[in-house]
Design a protein around this nucleic acid. Structure first.
Lengths: 345, 345
DNA sequence: AAGCGTGATAAAACTAGTTACAAGAGTCAA
DNA sequence: TTGACTCTTGTAACTAGTTTTATCACGCTT
């Protein structure tokens, strides 16, 4: 084997030269082997093996005009809800022969625009977004690229890109209504950062309480630790009869903190979450929550985006209806029980 | 604007024609604007805008020979530990101008090989793997592609691909030793499925107990629910003084189940995990565990793989030392306490 | 024996960019 | 005035594949 051959990746031409045929024949061996005589095919095959040839993705892409790549922009992977969504999205895309490139934005629209650029630069044929807050530069980018874009975790039929998700306001309202129906009048609302999260903002906006209901809001980190910390803070003031957590991770943390302070759930305080993480059915007590159909959202997004890319059908916005999941952490308030609360430790 | 122009994506040639310059000049406007006179540059820029031109990733890739794409093969995203790893990996790669394509394998080596093929087909320049169990077809693939490959979540300096991770046997041993040092002699070991998970197998193999120690193994789903279920099963038999969970999600589920049955931790049973998830510091009681430096693993993998791809330096295997994190769930066994266990509900 | 269809293969055009090289114009110093 | 130099731009080759068109040999008909 000569130096030239050993130097780097071999190409179609190298294989053609080696096996004494034209490049067209080698290409045929690769793409339509039955259209090449067996003798030639075998000769070419052995040259391919000897030269460790394998075709360049870029060269194929340039001809087909297809990269079969889809980009997803999510705030973070380090959150069970996005991870689950991406898991389902990846599965659905893979079934349709598409691969998933992920990029994290940390909820920052400018960063989203920058990462979108890099996704386009690497050849993404479509984009999956989270929420509906965009930087102007993002829209300009998509305007030029004329590329399929779907926004998820949000349902808004009037949004400029098709949305697949849920009405976050409604989701929050379902949870709040459940607590009100149970008889709660003073409710603490725990939520993650608002400034970089339009889903949280939309949930908050959905919480227009009736006149006789008092809500007080506690913003904290969107993590189990954040939920715990918020409850610790909350306990220094007047205790509400229920804590509505705008995310199950916060609720999980809240339950831990309440337990630490010896506050019985739901006897002394009710707790609700939103998301219905797989673990939420197993907390002690089991968490009453609102299920967001995140896997379905991933699957639906994969299907819709694949169809848009392949067939050019812009999908209709789609609302994955949330479901109230009644478990053990929410119960009617017991009159007077809040005044005699014990605070162990 | 003519039909031809409106029909589909415009190319460099279209822009050149429109602005009355050569393709080389347009290319220069894109890549080295200072080498083009201002007048020409502006003319070309406006043609670019009018035609909504933007360059094809594939065509660039074919020239540079670079796609700037890296593939990651993980069993699932629906597991906090892999999600955290990928989060850090994506961040590290993005800093170095690389994008991350993810593919899930469900722990199946054949599926891994198939997905690896699709990653290569879409142009990945390097691969990140989990564990050390490979299908033969995978090795054949990499052999041909001659592509940088790093195996993670595992440390084995003799493995055929460089590993960045931890010695799973050692990790498990650290946890076991801690329990033994506390005085436990009868220990239940909870772990996820063994057949598709070499990390779990390696952890199990690390658990060679001294003579006077009894271990009994419980295999279950790798989820909070799985941990709960295993403890429910375990309670029907003789109660050990400690439960060693080979993963924090199992430990979280175990704690929930123990609480449900009114078994005090650590007074009646000690519990240990492995991973140190962010939530593990907040469980009640706080989980004693072994920290796997997963973010560091992601960052180190990004750095090593980027260096391999760009500079051709094959990285040295790297062991991210695990750390024992002593919190509240593990304490010395209290003699006799196990016999008088109460099983509420 | 001429004509025709078919199968196998080669030649060349094509995809959409980058880049080496050449050429012309303008500036400046000797 | 001429040579050297820079600045700007165009021509054409190049990347690594796919695809269209053309050619040729072969066997079969008439």
């Amino acid at each position: 084997m000569s130096d030239r051959e050993a130097r780097k990746r071999s190409t179609l031409r190298d294989v053609a030269r080696r096996s004494g045929v034209s490049v067209a024949t080698v290409s045929r061996v690769l793409n339509a082997p039955m259209r090449v005589s067996q003798a030639t095919r075998e000769r070419v095959q052995s040259a391919i093996t000897e030269l460790r040839f394998f075709p360049s993705a870029a060269a194929r892409a340039i001809n087909s005009g297809r990269t079969r790549l889809v980009g997803a922009l999510v705030p973070t992977l380090d959150n069970a809800i996005f991870a689950r969504f991406l898991e389902a999205l990846e599965g659905g895309l893979a079934e349709r022969g598409l691969s998933l490139v992920v990029a994290t934005t940390n909820g920052d629209p400018e960063r989203e625009a920058a990462k979108a650029q890099s996704l386009i630069d690497c050849g993404a044929e479509g984009l999956v977004l989270s929420g509906v807050t965009r930087a102007a530069s993002f829209d300009a980018l998509v305007e030029r690229a004329q590329m399929p874009v779907i926004a998820t975790s949000y349902f808004d039929p009037d949004y400029r890109y098709p949305t697949i998700g849920y009405e976050n306001g409604t989701v929050a309202r379902i949870a709040l209504s459940h607590l009100i129906d149970l008889g709660h009048r003073e409710i603490a609302v725990l939520h993650g950062p608002v400034h970089n999260n339009d889903r949280t903002r939309a949930r908050l906006q959905g919480l227009e309480p009736p006149k006789n209901i008092t809500l007080c809001h506690w913003e904290t980190d969107l993590s189990v630790g954040g939920g715990s910390a918020a409850v610790n803070r909350l306990l220094s003031g007047r205790m509400p009869t229920a804590i509505l957590c705008l995310s199950d991770v916060l609720a999980t943390g809240a339950l831990y903190a309440l337990r630490r302070h010896g506050i019985a759930v739901p006897e002394q305080t009710s707790v609700m979450g939103i998301d219905d993480l797989p673990s939420s059915a197993f907390t002690r007590p089991a968490l009453t929550t609102v299920r967001l159909q995140v896997r379905e959202m991933g699957a639906a997004t994969a299907e819709a985006l694949a169809d848009w890319i392949e067939e050019g059908h812009r999908p209709e916005p789609r609302d994955l209806g949330p479901k109230l999941i009644v478990r053990e952490t929410a119960a009617p308030p017991v009159a007077g029980v809040n005044d005699g609360r014990k605070t162990r430790r």
